[in-house]
Design a protein around this nucleic acid. Structure first.
Lengths: 136, 136
DNA sequence: CTTGACCTTGGACTATACTCCACCCTTTAT
DNA sequence: ATAAAGGGTGGAGTATAGTCCAAGGTCAAG
């Protein structure tokens, strides 16, 4: 069953304008159009949108997401190799961000614990204090 | 020892313009100025910048980072409580992002493994294929 | 057969986060 | 003493990611 733009938008939790914007930038295209020009999407496009949103949330740009979505391995071994390179590189990026995020989380936790009745000295009662505890 | 803007910029890996931009938005202020008006920073500002960069990388806006940096727990119990609320909320945000990031990482790994000699069927050879394997 | 909900395109506008430029002053090295 | 390197301000310009609006076409219900 095909979805019109408003239906997809509300299922995916984005605005119609956003869908048209993503289309303009190559992130999604309607499967087809009605005779009158209405966009028709397939239901699986909901997952496509939710992938875009997840990827955006963790810091990928629409451009990078576009590249990720474009990845299609052909029979050609060379292009397969290129894809693997690209993906492995993104995995490294993700790993690095995971690390940064863990550091920040620990700082926030230190701050939260120290500042309301914890045993940590008051010098940790700022983010930078908490951070320097982590890096100690 | 005090650092002029260029020195701090190169230690922290940002441009001088960026430092002045951050100053305009309240994220950092020089400790003092020379008689001729040159900004003088302390060396610990390097950590401040690197905190800003980490936080930015994992998806916080400059505005949110500003709020994090402003956090200072006073003796006032009420404000202490507010700070804790704010921080605990940010911890939740970070946790959620960690989850999204892990999902994306698993998808990328599935893609990387499946497409260059792995045993996974070729249907996984796109991000969306890999994602749907994860969500299965 | 018209009203209201939904769709189309094109273009203007916004927020965020820089980046660059012009013009001028200060400091440092030769 | 002078040139190069570096710093100051103000303001314009750019990229990213939307968001809003006008003017008009489509479609199902009453």
């Amino acid at each position: 069953m095909m979805l019109k733009i408003g239906a997809l938008a509300s299922l995916a939790g984005v605005s119609r304008d956003t869908l048209r914007f993503y289309e303009k930038h190559g992130l999604i295209t309607p499967d087809t159009r009605t005779d009158s020009g209405y966009r028709l999407y397939s239901e699986t496009d909901v997952y496509r949108i939710s992938f875009i949103l997840s990827a955006k949330e963790v810091g990928f740009t629409l451009n990078e997401i576009h590249q990720l979505l474009e990845l299609e391995v052909t029979k050609d071994d060379k292009s397969c190799h290129d894809v693997k390179q690209f993906v492995d590189n993104k995995i490294q990026v993700v790993n690095q961000r995971l690390g940064e995020m863990e550091k920040i989380k620990q700082s926030l936790k230190t701050l939260s614990n120290a500042c309301c009745g914890g045993d940590e000295p008051a010098t940790h009662c700022t983010i930078l204090g908490a951070l320097s505890v982590q890096n100690r």
